[in-house]
Amino acid sequence: MNAISTAYQGIVSASNRFDKAASSTVKNASDGKDILTDLVEQIDSRTAFEANISVFKAADAMLGKLLDIKT
């Protein structure tokens, strides 16, 4: 498995986690329940999303350099 596809899967996973936590936040807030865990999950998934974007960009840059070397 290459870095770009791994990063892409991480981006999708983090996005799904964020969406789930955001929905849970709204539900729990409207029910008067604690939303702290949901907020922490949103922050964690955002950080994972950003990290995977960085991996994607780095892998793309490395692939570009490799293609430049081969031509």
Rank of each mutant, 00 (worst) to 15 (best):
N2I: 02
A3F: 03
A3S: 08
I4Q: 07
I4L: 07
S5Q: 10
T6V: 09
T6G: 05
T6R: 11
Y8A: 09
Y8I: 12
Q9S: 11
A14T: 07
R17K: 15
R17C: 10
F18V: 06
D19P: 03
D19L: 15
K20P: 05
K20C: 07
K20T: 15
A22W: 11
V26W: 03
K27L: 11
N28C: 06
A29L: 10
S30C: 04
D31M: 11
D31H: 06
G32K: 11
K33H: 11
I35S: 10
L36Q: 09
T37Y: 09
T37K: 14
D38K: 10
L39C: 14
V40L: 13
E41N: 09
E41M: 02
E41S: 06
E41H: 02
Q42K: 13
I43W: 08
S45M: 04
R46L: 15
A48I: 02
F49K: 01
F49W: 05
E50Y: 04
A51L: 05
I53Y: 03
S54R: 10
S54C: 03
S54L: 08
F56P: 00
K57S: 07
K57L: 09
K57D: 13
A59V: 00
A59H: 00
A59T: 01
M62Y: 06
M62I: 07
M62K: 09
L63V: 09
L63K: 07
G64S: 10
K65T: 05
L66T: 12
L66D: 08
L66C: 07
L67R: 09
L67C: 09
L67M: 12
D68P: 01
D68W: 00
I69K: 14
T71R: 01
